[in-house]
Design a protein around this nucleic acid. Sequence first.
RNA 1: GCCCCCAUGGCGAAAUCGGUAGACGCAUUCGACUUAAAAUCGAACGCUGCGGCGUGUGGGUUCGAGUCCCACUGGGGGCACCA
Length: 990
Amino acid sequence: MSEIEPSAQAQAHDADQSAFRYNAAMAQTIEDKWQRIWDEQGTFWAANVEGELTDGEGRHADGRRPFFAMDMFPYPSGKGLHVGHPLGYLASDVVSRYHRMKGENVLHAMGYDAFGLPAEQYAVKTGQHPRVTTEQNIANMRRQLHRMGLSFDDRRSFATIEPGYVRWTQWIFSRIFDAWYDPDKRNPSGSMGCARPIGELVEQFRSGERAIDGHEGRAWDDLSEAEQADVLNEYRLAYISKSPVNWCPGLGTVLANEEVTAEGRSERGNYPVFQRELRQWSMRITAYGHRLIEDLDTIDWPEKVKLMQRNWIGESHGASVHFQVRVGDGMEDMEIYTTRPDTLFGTTFCVVSPEHPLLLQVPERWPEGVPEQWTGGYATPIEAVAAYRMTAEAKTAADRVNDAGEKTGLFTGLYAVNPITGAELPVFTADYVLMDYGTGAIMAVPGGDQRDYDFAAKYGLPVVYTVEPLPGSDDTLANYEGNAPFVSHDGVVVNSSVDATWARGDALDINGMRVDEAIAAVTAWLEQAQVGRGTVSYRLRDWLFSRQRYWGEPFPIVYDDEGVPHLVPDSMLPINLPEVPDYSPKTFDPEDAQSNPEAPLSRNEDWVEVTLDLGDGPKRYHRETNTMPNWAGSCWYYMRYLDPHDTEHMVERDEYDYWMGPDHNPTAGESGGVDLYIGGVEHAVLHLLYSRFWHKILFDLGYVDSSEPFHKLFNQGMIQAWAYTDDRGEYVQADEVEEGAADAFGEPTFTWHGRHVNREFGKMGKSLKNIVTPDDMYDDYGADTFRLYEMSMGPLDESRPWNTRNVVGGMRFLQRLWRNAVDETTGEVTVSDEAPDDKTLKLLNNTIAEVTVEMEAMRPNTAIAKLIVLNNHLTGLERVPRAAIEPLILMVSPIAPHIAEELWSRLGHDRSLAHHPWPQADERYVGQDVVTAVVQIKGKVRAKLEVSPDIDPDELERMALEAVADRLGGVPPRKVIVKAPKIVSVVPGN
RNA sequence: GCCCCCAUGGCGAAAUCGGUAGACGCAUUCGACUUAAAAUCGAACGCUGCGGCGUGUGGGUUCGAGUCCCACUGGGGGCACCA
């Protein structure tokens, strides 16, 4: 191995006496050298069970314990990295290096999530093909990450845009399209509900085991192909529907619910989003709602993220109830959803959403004596409903949010019959009822619901209270009547009995019951009377899966002349993106709600129109021109690291079982999955929910044998930064700001080129002029110091401000470490082979024990503090013993690997320390000879005693009382608590 | 509005099970070395009237509270007409 010669720059900087000093220039030389050696020797290659992927020494896994540590892979934007980005990558690298030293077979790799909107927008802006700009960005990002010394197995890197990857993304889509969800079948983990191949559903239809929806009485084979396709579409896990979706004219695409902000605007670009009824692809994630909640209990994730997923899925238990609606001379069925079936006696009207199909059947005339406010002044219900639908559709989601609380709506001219009481209830349409939650229709109970109360107050509808406060509480119904609903579950049912129910003619009386009891009683009655049943609703919507974009995965779908979708056979995958004359999206005036989406892929007719043989001879088809959302690639990428070059499988079965199967690793739990997944909390309900969903489908279908993709999730904090504005509010260059004396209020003041500036706190960004890049760090300190600083800033999962001024502390630590082994003037190794003294042995072994605990718990900040203490001790010794500094170097190596490798090699080792066993503490030297025992009187420290750690409690009590005798003034203590050997707490007698 | 999380010196933080609050680092100050400076090494470093007081504020539980409980203040995050 080549000897490091100090660079000319380093020599000039440090003059003659410290030519071998560890400084920025030396660090860079060392880092280049070791990064090259690691690459050449395949130091970080992870070994597969079989195949071409062996470790650097040509070995397969051979039963070694696996550890799969993964980062949320980056989106290769053109902006490059700042020091805030790699915090998670550094954390996972430290963990990976530590686990390698524990002898585990560590899989750590990095891919690139390269489809998506920003890449496309950047390409449009620069006039280059997105593939060109994306690949440039990937190359740049790869260089920046490599320079940090991250221990990736680079053979396993890939980008989601590569045809070899797209092929399997499309293959997974095909499996999802070709599957349905059977709620009555157990899945492989034993709970109810399982995805099954669509062929098994067809078999049920064909055999008559299952009735064919909408075609009862007909044989499956008598249905036309288009009719069959329509039936199956209602079951497929990937399906086409015409339903209200988020249409964003400013971006020219539809968006998933998760991509729309609370303000009702697009998460990207912040454009208005409109509810439009459009024909789009969806994925039936709602079928998995319960399992996605339930299985959170099997994984080791931050409670915060689990809670966000539970809230997002929003499971609510209630009942659906069939109301009869008078239409003309007949009756139509209207199904409503309620969580409070106990309040059926208190419903005084019904509301359907503006998109509800019942509105197609409104009468031609208003009934007699309808108030003008109900009709909105329209001559007929048909006109009123049409007009209301128009205004509702034109509303952006943002308008809906702003109007929340302000109720609007119109009477439909229809009346529904309460199935229990037989009361005739006017049916309104109002946009506070949403078509895609529950059944899109509600029974309004103004006495028990704030929204219904508001609506009733505005339209002069009666209010009936059916629950009153518990007897014995201070509260009475009188406190509510005339001004508010009683919404609490804590109450007793009143006003709720009939002698003969309308639907069934039996008596029903729930008066006096508590709410929970009453819910159960009414639900049971509904089921017996066959007018309703207990149901579960989800806030979660099905996942809108198509986008009007060029830069995404094409669907493996073609349509025949009748518009029936067909899968493109697996053998024809991947379907690559065609060259089109213009790949930019067709965007519109952001406010133009009536515009229509147009997919860029439809611009290439040669690609769209295609002749294929799908098994029944060559026929003409046209391709699906929408593309998949950019979440598709990230839904399954973790599996591809295991087996990145496989052309036969998404992932080879044996490799999956070894790396991610639930039996492979005692720490991965019953769910199996990635051992450690590090990333930002911003993906809590997007990527992490979609990934779990896809994974569960693949699990149900038998392609993978762990029920969850990621066993342990860790969210790293955000690195924030100070920014400074001048008196005009313009940002000034943050690194040119100087701190001045505190002002009259003790607040610090800041100046920029002599002018006063204000400090604010937030993100790091170009526009805030406070960017610090990793390259700045390499130039001034080197990658090891940069790594050390980021790891020592504080707990990994908390956000904190970046402060370049503090980085020098890490540099000094590494310099002292270096100086403890190498003479700065001569470059000679100075360690001694003599045995360490007793004090050094104690400190060394205690440090090993403590640092091991910190590393296991992912607390590099406290590990570093303890390493510094040991190093500072060695600095004070006459000669530094080899037996002390070698374990120190090993413990430093996960955090500052380059300097550790260099010192290790200078100390005479000819192999990399990357796989050297982690130091073991010698138990004989762990613990203390003397401990300080504290004597407290009423919790205040009054004396300290140096005692043996295994002192007898009675002896300690005697010593303690003697030590504080003068404070007790001869009065015997009332109570003495002894926690030997650390605390004696005395309660004085007076 | 509902739900969740956080608050410790001048600064980043530590105290992991209720047991000496402030480890470690930055900044600052003093000293040694030096013609001088840098670097390095050593020391001091919560406040204080030297009695004490101190972990956002007020209460509580306990021999003992940064840690547990209640109420509040400030900051951050999630959801938001979900029947």
